[in-house]
């Protein structure tokens, strides 16, 4: 795939999370949808302003847990009943109470791993390139003390002039174009 060219979006830089959240709320009200906030630490109000409700991480975690419990239980059954049938204290070969603890451990292991890796995958990571890093102020500030709102060019409402005008009404430190 050839590299995408042209403008990725307009990036507004703010000094405080309050300004960022306000601008995000206004942008949403103005009809923008394809936008993203970048903050040095989690700002829950920003997620709320973006109407970022739920993720699919819990579902991935649940599926992982179910996979873990099934795998472990079936494996133990197979081992005890067919592969290595041993008479232990005269108990039946299929002694399910003894299978519960390892099955439980596998549930936790699989659920934990799927939650962690599922979160990374759903975040689109690892990602070797992201256009916003083309903005020098983003590189310097995004992980320290600046708050960014990026209105993306793929949004149908996006227009270079109007969107810039819209962003400049806020107390943004700067509004810069970001190229792909």
């Amino acid at each position: 795939m050839p590299p995408r060219e042209g403008i990725y979006g307009l990036l507004a830089e703010f000094n405080t999370p309050t300004d960022l959240v306000f601008a995000t709320e206004q942008a949403r009200q103005a009809g923008y949808r394809r936008m993203e906030c970048y903050t040095p630490y989690p700002v829950e109000e920003a997620a709320e302003a973006l109407h970022f409700h739920s993720t699919r991480v819990p579902l991935v975690c649940l599926l992982g847990g179910l996979m873990g419990v099934t795998t472990a239980f079936l494996m133990e059954t197979w081992m005890s009943v067919w592969a290595y049938p041993l008479n232990i204290a005269g108990r039946p070969l299929f002694s399910w109470p003894a299978f519960i603890i390892p099955a439980y451990e596998w549930t936790i292991l699989f659920a934990g791993l799927s939650a962690a890796f599922g979160m990374i995958a759903l975040n689109g990571l690892p990602q070797l390139y992201h256009p916003v890093f083309n903005a020098p102020n983003f590189r310097n500030g995004a992980t320290t003390d600046k708050f960014f709102l990026c209105l993306e060019a793929t949004d149908p409402k996006f227009s270079l002039t109007e969107t810039r005008g819209f962003l400049e009404q806020f107390p943004a430190v700067s509004v810069v174009e970001v190229d792909h």
Binding site: F22, Q26, E168, F170, P171, A172, V173, S174, V175, V176
Partner: peptide, 12 residues
């Protein structure tokens, strides 16, 4: 491309 905004959005 910094644009200083002094009017710190009162209503906002």
């Amino acid at each position: 491309m910094a644009s200083g905004h002094e009017h710190h959005g009162e209503a906002g």
